[in-house]
Design a protein around this nucleic acid. Structure first.
Lengths: 224, 224
DNA sequence: TTCAAAGGTGTACGGCGTACACCAGGAGGA
DNA sequence: TCCTCCTGGTGTACGCCGTACACCTTTGAA
């Protein structure tokens, strides 16, 4: 034996290594095989700590969610929710792969439940009924995890892969085909290379919703 | 030759077959190999009509989006947007796989752009500035495609896979760990087996946003 | 009549997740 | 002290996947 006793593999070590790997090289670089070899172990060894790849991904997401931190409820519900969600967003910025993975998860792990419970608690300690809290959590949707729910990224720029921006004729044609998008792009300065401020959009929608929630709450709204 | 000339494969035929296949057996049943064999053709033949699997998925989504229909703008922007988004939702209900696939797309195909342009046009023909329209489209997020952006499905039920609902002790323990979720579940009757009404939640958030949009519009809001 | 293009074929490669049988070594009871 | 069982790492193998590449057939225009 050339090696001394190696520190034994644990579920946590495996998950942490997977997260680190995804942070460094993207989620597609994380396979059972690559992860195993990064841990100096044979692929099948992972299955002693993780029941399959889905479980691995669930665990990775759980680890990220644990990093969301916990709120300061003395702020009042509105500021507290806002701070919590923005803190989630900040965490997610450090794990760019997590967004896509969260979108594919469906099992509510303890970490997921615990976070949702905490966030619900912020509303309810602000006087929200369980009923209103329920619907309000739905309305937030993916935003509770810290990201805006948008497909196809930035819809406001007239530079999709299907439009060649360097060819003026082609671009003029695109402007004719998609006049409203062109107008939006003009207004936001997207054509001059400026890209759209995702953080602003996130806060914009979040505040719109929080304002609406507040109104409902004050009005004593109930779904009945 | 036993066979007469077979109707030649086209991109559209391939995409339509893929959509049908996903509708019937789920998206995971659609592989290049399975699709090819369903079309009576060898896997590599598909690559003459589709550049790779991503392109296939883009095309499938495009086909679904084409089915979203187009609005009746004489309704006024608010009703028109509402109708358009709900129509998207209805279409999506017939293609349950599409939601997850849309979440993974990033290329803005012509179908995507055309739909976004139409929807933007509804706002702008209602007098919205390009600026406001831009942010408002962001705020809608995935909702424009007809689905609520929620991870982990229904967060209001205390019956996640990690909580065994049939074991009373375990359930009591869960209620103690997640008190707010338990309260919500009680309020919504989830414990009596009733599940949460996704259509209601969708319309709830949509209307909240439309109301907020209206307010901003009336107030002459601008991001500057 | 010729010939190039378009479209279908066959083979092969390297990756993936994971089933299954196996084995090393340490802990616990006799 | 010996035996046994359990935990966790190993090795092999299977069947799937997407797709590169070279090939052949058909077809329609020149």
């Amino acid at each position: 034996m050339v090696e001394a006793r190696r520190t034994p593999l644990t579920r946590l070590r495996a998950l942490a290594a997977a997260v680190a790997m995804a942070d460094a090289d993207g989620i597609e670089a994380v396979s059972m095989r690559s992860l195993a070899s990064a841990l100096g172990v044979v692929p099948m060894a992972l299955y002693k700590h993780v029941s399959n790849k889905e479980d691995l991904l669930d665990g990775m997401v759980g680890l990220v969610i644990r990093g969301y931190g916990r709120p300061a409820p003395e702020l009042g519900w509105r500021a507290a929710v806002r701070a919590q969600v923005l803190s989630a967003r900040a965490t997610l910025a450090r794990h760019p792969w997590a967004r896509a993975v969260i979108e594919t998860r469906s099992t509510r792990t303890p970490e997921v439940l615990s976070y949702l419970d905490t966030l619900s608690g912020l509303f309810m300690s602000g006087g929200f009924s369980a009923d209103l809290t329920h619907h309000v959590m739905h309305a937030l949707g993916h935003r509770v995890w810290g990201f805006s729910p948008e497909g196809f990224q930035d819809p406001n720029v007239v530079s999709p892969s299907s439009v060649d921006q360097t060819d003026p004729a082609h671009l003029a044609e695109a402007r004719r085909t998609y006049p409203h998008i062109a107008a939006i792009a003009d207004a936001s300065g997207a054509l001059s290379g400026r890209t759209c401020d995702e953080d602003f959009e996130f806060a914009f929608a979040l505040d719109l919703l929080l304002e609406a929630f507040d109104r409902l709450h004050r009005a004593g709204w109930s779904s009945a």
